[in-house]
Each structure stands twice: as C-alpha cells, then as structure tokens.
Design a protein around this nucleic acid. Structure first.
Lengths: 137, 137
DNA sequence: ACGTATTTGTACGTATGTATC
DNA sequence: AGATACATACGTACAAATACG
C-alpha cells in the first residue's frame, strides 16, 4: 500500500512497488504496465506522482514508454565489441540527438570507445558488450 | 527566445538553450545555473516546464542539482580498470540503492564487469575507464 | 475516410515541506 | 529567524499519437 504520510515520497513508493513486481516476475519482459489512470485510481495518488515514478523507471532503463502505454524492457541480444591494449572505454548518457542517431531509448547509456588510433565510436549500451581482445582466439 | 507556439515543446527548447550555453562555454564546469524562478521569469514559462528541462539535463548527466541550485557537472579524474580476454563489460543505469552504494549521482551510468572467474563488479561510470589488459606492460 | 476512445505528453496553477545560507 | 531554492504533490486543461469500429 502507498502511504501518503510515510517518510518516503509517494512517487518513490510506487517506484519500489513496480521494482518488486518486476523482480518477482509479476511483471514480465515486454509486459504492459497499467495505464497512468489505472495507477492513479488504484492507489489514490495524483497523476503527477504517478508520472514521476514512471519517469524514474524510464531513467533506470527498466521500462519503455510510448503513447500507447509502458512496457517492461525486454532483454536484447548484445553484439560483442573487442578492445585492445590501448583502447579506452567510457560510458555516459547520450543527448537526445545522440539517442536518435544510435536508435537507443531513454534510460540507455552509451559506450564511448576511443581506439588507440584516435577514432571514437559511440555504441548503444543495451546492445553492446565490451570484451578484452582475445589473443588466443 | 523560447516560443510557446513553436512545434518543439517549451521544456525541450530550454534544454536546447542550456545545451548551447554549456557547449559554447557560457556555462563552464561547476558553474551555477540560474535558479528555477530565474528561468521562469526570464522566459515567461511555468515552473513545471523549467523543472522538466532540468530533469532532462540531470538525466543526461550534464548538471547536478542540490537544494542550493544546479551546477554544470565538472569532469573528474577517472581510475583505470583493466579487463582480460574473457571478461565482459556492460553498462546500464543504476537503481537508487545502487546509486547510493556506489556514490554516483543521477544521470551517471554504471559499468558491470563480469570477470572470467564469475565475480561481478559494479563501477561508477563517471570515475572509471575500461582498458584492455596490457600484455606488453 | 472518419470519428471516437484510450493513453501519454505538455503546460499551466497552487500549496506545503525541507535544506541551506 | 528570515530568505532562498529545490522537492513533493495535489489540481486542471488541452494536445498529440494510436487503435478501433
């Protein structure tokens, strides 16, 4: 139950609740979440609080929202990128144009690979794994 | 100028504006941004729109907000983590408990390093660089 | 092709709480 | 104590995208 008088803010209580439901499998991959209005009515909270909660879940990369509702983000196949001795990988959140360019959704970080040659690659964080160069095949 | 009748939403126009100011150096690292109320008065927008914009900038990792205002996030020293042949690195956004545990702020992704031995390390994305194991020293 | 229902997006207002200076 | 600034949370209204009959 969500308690408006608790110390923890209402919207964070809803975040916790959805976290639990996803962890326990009550909400599976690709499964549709209740609509904003459903949460509002279910818990007697404002739409504002509900939307904040969904905003957090999006920012964490747990859900994906479209104009037709929110879904639990499904795991995806990752491609493997090898890095060598002198290559450096960092990670950060993309700007909106970068998101569009790479085709990543909100809540997904990107890898920045700086090759020893000086080239710079941006890679989607949810479809990429970084591995050390395998010298032994 | 922010145009409420433009196609682009007011809050995104403000995001663009701050992006530009940071890129052009009008807002430098660690520099204080105007207060919420300043933006509201400057551009004749609602606090709601202003806060959305700041929320986006936080989520992108561009600014850090405290109860005393927002600042441009400053670059930090990064420690280097080596990965070997069979180690795998992924990146994702942390949950709130993970953020606290690692001491990272909103908008900062984390690295997940899975060592060939099976150990799993979580590392702050803004203070870590990943390198391939250097075999030649 | 069109209208309607559903659902999220944007945007305004207001009030109160909390932390910092 | 007072001023400042952000955080939370309620309200309202209309716009835009999508799905359906």
């Amino acid at each position: 139950m969500i308690d408006p008088d608790a110390d923890r803010p209402v919207y964070k209580q809803l975040v916790d609740l959805v976290h639990e439901q996803i962890e326990r499998g009550r909400l599976g991959p690709d499964q549709r979440l209740p609509a904003e209005s459903d949460y509002v009515e279910m818990h007697g909270i404002s739409r504002d609080s509900e939307r904040r909660a969904m905003g957090v879940l999006r920012a964490e990369g747990l859900i994906v929202t479209t104009n037709r509702g929110s879904r639990v983000r499904a795991g995806r196949q990752r491609s493997v990128v090898q890095i060598g001795d002198c290559d450096v990988v960092t990670a950060r959140m993309p700007s909106e144009p970068e998101r569009r360019q790479l085709g990543v959704k909100e809540g997904v970080p990107i890898f920045v690979v700086e090759r020893s040659g000086g080239e710079r690659e941006l890679l989607p964080g949810d479809r990429t794994e970084i591995r050390g160069e395998s010298f032994g095949g």
